[in-house]
Design a protein around this nucleic acid. Structure first.
Lengths: 126, 126
DNA sequence: TATCATTGTTAGGCTCTCCTTACTTTTTTC
DNA sequence: GAAAAAAGTAAGGAGAGCCTAACAATGATA
């Protein structure tokens, strides 16, 4: 198990690497508004859990395990965010913000139902 | 602001008083599987925040402020749980479990949409 | 190349929520 | 009414996740 904060950081690291090929600790500090020492601490924890490879200034890399975990979170996030915007007609920004928080506590079964619901019902009304 | 744990305890205290007229610290300990000292600590915090009146063995009472706050949580909980069971066809137990966690992090706007959604759409399919 | 800015680390501290152990106080029950 | 059980409190501790201040290392620039 991993905490909500660490899951957020891992997700961000993953997304940023996909988008910009690399990421530095300072990017996390800025993105989440937390101090540089707190980022260091979090990165060490992620590395301890074998989710990233962290070698200080040499950079941050995802491990296979880290990528798998991050992908799960990203998928949950997307399903939640889509459900909120498309089914409940919530604006994108608020949908994103809430997805970020709920993705850490919701069970997979509900996520699955949301995903299926999307396919079976609301598309008819578009 | 109040933490998720304290909000859970407050909600439980409120529901139990409504149901059984009174509640003791030990009931919270059993319900949430936390130690008696942890309950004491939590009750002192709730009292500090003016949400309950706590006088040790003399009992626990809700304040006006506490009742209002608990009612909000209970309402959120119910809307979430109903949405999960009726719209997403999740079983009651899992719906309850997830409502308990999500109620602490979800925005009011989404709760409102869930409530309205209920009225406008899925009732047609029952 | 010397200086300055940026990035990261160390050390120490804070709050929160939980714990255990060891009382004290109240309530049962024999 | 005395012993035992139940309920609550005090004291001290642990881990998570933050913080600041101070220091070290790297990189850019004049």
């Amino acid at each position: 198990m991993i905490s909500a904060s660490l899951e957020d950081y891992l997700e961000f690291i993953h997304n940023t690497i996909l988008e910009k090929k690399e990421i530095k600790a300072i990017d996390i500090s800025k993105a989440f508004n937390i101090s540089r020492p707190s980022v260091s601490e979090a990165l060490i924890k992620l590395a301890d859990k074998d989710l990233i490879i962290y070698e200080g200034r040499k950079g941050i890399k995802m491990t296979k395990k880290g990528i798998e975990q991050a992908q799960k979170t990203v998928k949950k996030h997307k399903i939640l965010s889509d459900f909120f915007t498309k089914v409940l007609k919530i604006d994108r920004e608020q949908a994103e913000k809430n997805a970020c928080k709920i993705e850490h506590v919701i069970d997979d079964e509900i996520i699955e139902k949301m995903e299926n619901y999307k396919e079976s019902k609301y598309k008819d009304n578009e």
